[in-house]
Design a binder for these strands. Sequence first.
DNA 1: TTGATTGTACCGATCGTTCGGTATAGTATT
DNA 2: AATACTATACCGAACGATCGGTACAATCAA
Lengths: 185, 185
Amino acid sequence: MSTALSASKLKAIEAIAIVFRRVGYSAASMQMLSESTNLGKSSLYHHFPDGKQEMALAVLHWVEDLLQRELMQPLFVSPEKRQQSVDAFLKKLLEYYQGGRLGCLLGVLSFQDCPQTVSDEVARVMRVWIQLFEDYLKVYQIKDAKDKAAHAVRAIQGGLILSVSTQEEDYFSNALKDVHAILLE
Amino acid sequence: MSTALSASKLKAIEAIAIVFRRVGYSAASMQMLSESTNLGKSSLYHHFPDGKQEMALAVLHWVEDLLQRELMQPLFVSPEKRQQSVDAFLKKLLEYYQGGRLGCLLGVLSFQDCPQTVSDEVARVMRVWIQLFEDYLKVYQIKDAKDKAAHAVRAIQGGLILSVSTQEEDYFSNALKDVHAILLE
DNA sequence: TTGATTGTACCGATCGTTCGGTATAGTATT
DNA sequence: AATACTATACCGAACGATCGGTACAATCAA
């Protein structure tokens, strides 16, 4: 594993993530990133020598970590608290996506012309996420775990598109109901 | 209704649409659009005086028309051919999205920082699409038509995100199976 | 004092857009 | 029938602005 993140760099990454999620890759200018992080351009290049591309990769790594540790892993603890952990999981999703007002980094970057390294990383993290769902479903011996894992991620991403584009948050919260049904089948 | 499109302008719009679907709004440069249409930059401004924004709006209007007339309307003819019309519908989707290799204009533009007029238009056309699904489901007196209409569009958009990002076309074709089930319930 | 961090000034490239102008094909005027 | 005029379609060159990125001196923290 690589070196741990300093607190200041973590704060920068969180700010950068929000910019990417809001406007995508190409439209995220160094000026926007500078303003959102409260860091001068040279400071950004100090932390991320390869510029925007490295920022995107750093954000993706951070998101993967978040996904793995904060979001998915709690699902795997103590089967007797299955119901509660699923509810907590859905609540975290609703929070992270701001009720459907803000897109998913993976989904947003999927439809952009990023450098190949970034697109590859998006693909990898997306597959990791689906795999984590599948692993969870297999714990409970649910049939067609692979299909249903993809179904869950599809519902989240599709719900976000509908919610973000129409600005009607119901589309996302309804998608979460589908996810709920899949996880507690 | 506005004036009909000339054949040459229609060809330009189709070429522009592909660029937007592949790289999004911000990353679609005038140079790319010029090359894809085989039109000089200034010729593009002759056809679309307001530039990129007008191109996006023109493409959205064309897509709305396509959606309405070519894709959805055939679903409403002759209930005795319900099965066949749904199969033809799914085949058209698979074609238009190139089996999941190319995103949907609406989905792609949802996650971009477009001019407000463009975003508004995306929202409107997205709602039109959902409404058309709902109308179809109501013809067959299916319960919760509104929810299921949103579910269908969500499956398509979510499937495209997974398929485009991972480059695994199964995610999209599996999504279409969901749509199939919804339409023929 | 040394190394990490930052602000300022700057670079060439590219952005979306505008300008000036050409070619062609009708249409009106004589 | 010949001429002037207009409309449409197209183009390359250039505009000012902004892009991502660099150089370097100043500053802060150890």
